[in-house]
């Protein structure tokens, strides 16, 4: 059996194709698009935090369509039950058997919209599926098909009737991003594109779902040199040493930061991680999982840390 491994250059080509395709629907937002795609390639899940109507769903759908995978959407409500996500057995009266009807979680890309609106019980069912890559319904464990990528969204403005995700749950997302408001030019462009219909209907797949798995494997092969690891550790230590940090970054945060940096390297066709990748991803990967004291902003603190921690010497002793 001959294994054809994806070359970094080819990976960058595929990723660019997907990005271009997504941008046919999403105007601007290069960074968010790339972060979302990086989350997919890194084999993790992402959290989009922004107001409604900023294109979160559109981004998830465009991504799903572009990679040729199945897409499901879970609109989280307070009365949503775990079985509504995982699916349940239904009695088939025709042949008198119980038949498993898979829930919306059985898809390649799942959008969990307003995840903070549902109960902690349902949240944990979803998050367990995210962590394990499998669901257990009525004693039967069912493995979810790869790639499995959850895009959860959270509305940070509303607090009434919400169950904010605790830090331990937030820690499971490889990165979090904000869509951010569109610029005037982008807004005009969005309106122009929608004049005669919805461009997402015309969107087609540009890569195969199998190639997403290959991209994920290529991501694992990207080299993170010892110097990079030292840098990661130094960053995490520096964050821990900050007085305004209440809940420091976990080890998982470090692992995710390394993985995300590996994925980021692929976008530039590199098979090795640069400290620049780590710097760039520090805020998206770390900010949402830090518990801060008072009104301190994690992103500001991280910016400061990243700009002061020395990168390890180029020559390793």
């Amino acid at each position: 059996m001959q294994e054809v491994s994806l070359q970094p250059r080819r990976a960058a080509e595929l990723l660019e194709r997907v990005e271009t395709n997504v941008h046919r629907v999403i105007v601007g937002k290069d960074r968010v698009v790339r972060l979302a795609l990086a989350g997919l390639v890194a084999g993790g899940h992402i959290l989009l935090q922004d107001l409604p109507g900023t294109g979160k769903t559109m981004l998830a759908r465009a991504l799903a369509t572009s990679v040729g995978g199945t897409f499901r959407r879970i609109q989280c409500t307070p009365d949503l039950l775990p079985s509504d996500i995982t699916g349940s057995s239904v009695f088939n009266q025709k042949d008198l058997t119980f038949e498993f009807v898979p829930g919306p979680i059985f898809a390649h890309i799942v959008l969990a919209d307003e995840v903070n609106r549902t109960t902690p019980r349902t949240q944990s069912a979803l998050l367990e599926a995210m962590g394990e890559g499998q669901v257990t319904v009525e004693g039967t464990t069912r493995v979810l098909e790869r790639p499995f990528f959850v895009v959860a969204t959270q509305n940070p403005a509303e607090f009434h009737g919400t169950y904010p995700l605790p830090e331990s749950q937030l820690d499971r997302f490889v990165l979090a991003a904000e869509m951010g408001p569109p610029t005037d030019a982008e807004a005009l462009e969005v309106l122009a594109r929608r004049e005669h219909g919805d461009p997402i209907a015309e969107l087609g797949a540009v890569i195969e779902i199998q190639e997403v798995i290959e991209l994920q494997e290529a991501c694992l092969r990207v080299v993170a040199a010892p110097a990079i690891r030292s840098y990661l550790v130094a960053l995490l230590q520096a964050v821990r040493a900050r007085s305004e940090v209440l809940l420091p970054a976990s080890m998982r945060a470090g692992v995710y930061l390394q993985r995300a940096a590996q994925a980021w390297a692929l976008f530039e066709g590199r098979d090795f991680v640069l400290p620049d990748d780590v710097k760039l991803l520090a805020v998206p990967v770390l900010a949402h999982r830090l518990g801060m004291r008072g009104r301190a902003k994690a992103a500001d603190m991280l910016d400061e840390v990243v700009s002061t921690v020395p990168i390890p010497p180029l020559r390793q002793h």
């Binding site: 040199a225 110097a227 590199r270 090795f272 991680v273 400290p275 180029l314």
Partner: peptide
């Protein structure tokens, strides 16, 4: 070249 050397050996 430095990046290739230091981070990819």
């Amino acid at each position: 070249a430095v990046n290739e050397g230091a981070y990819a050996r």
